[in-house]
């Protein structure tokens, strides 16, 4: 089954779901409407012809200055057909939210928590959407592109005294 046939089969299932399809260096990536992600994924997993049983990877990307700003990327693997498929979902800057895939693949649980922790994307229907990497009292989402990069100003001889005065030294 070649890439055109995969897209055709997906279109036959839900004609309005596919927004875009690209092929780059032999890998097929399909952009899907966020509202229909749950049905599309269920179809990709359960369809006999396609059979993408395994969610390899779930991650998020921040394209600052572009609309939709965020993108959630799913990499699927079909063991039977030895084929990989990339599914993308674009999400708006204001309150990005998409349906959780934990009902289809339990492995999505931790990866969605990671995307929530670092990018602030809400996964609707997730059983426990909490921070997984940063401390619980952390403010903001550190992998967003508008978060400052450095933790502290780099000290040289001319600014060391100023930094030192501001630094919170611990006491006994």
């Amino acid at each position: 089954m070649n890439h055109a046939a995969i897209v055709a089969r997906l279109r036959a299932y839900d004609p309005g779901a596919i927004l875009d399809e690209r092929e780059f260096r032999g890998q097929l990536s399909v952009t899907v409407r966020p509202e229909s992600i749950l049905g599309v994924m269920q179809f990709l997993r359960d369809d006999v012809e396609l059979g993408y049983q395994f969610l390899e990877n779930l991650c998020a990307v921040d394209y600052l200055g572009r609309e939709p700003r965020f993108e959630v990327v799913y990499h699927l693997l079909s063991f039977t057909r030895r084929h990989r498929l990339c599914i993308k979902v674009g999400l708006p800057e204001q309150s990005p939210a998409v349906d959780s895939l934990t009902g289809i693949w339990p492995t999505a649980n931790y990866q969605e928590r990671e995307a929530y922790d670092l990018f602030g994307i809400t996964f609707v229907g997730h059983p426990s959407l909490e921070r997984i990497m940063m401390p619980d009292d952390w403010q903001g989402h550190p992998l967003r592109k508008d978060v400052p990069l450095g933790g502290e100003e780099v000290a040289f001889t001319f600014n060391q005294a100023r930094i030192d005065a501001r630094k919170p030294y611990a006491r006994d």
Binding site: M134, P142, V147, L149, G150, G151, E152, V154, A155, K167, P168, Y169, A170, R171, D172
Partner: peptide
């Protein structure tokens, strides 16, 4: 001692912020 090469959000910039 000072955060080293990890000047970012995740690493404490010197453990002297936490303990003497």
């Amino acid at each position: 001692a000072c955060g080293g090469v990890f000047n970012n959000y995740a690493i404490v910039q010197g453990v002297d912020e936490v303990i003497p």
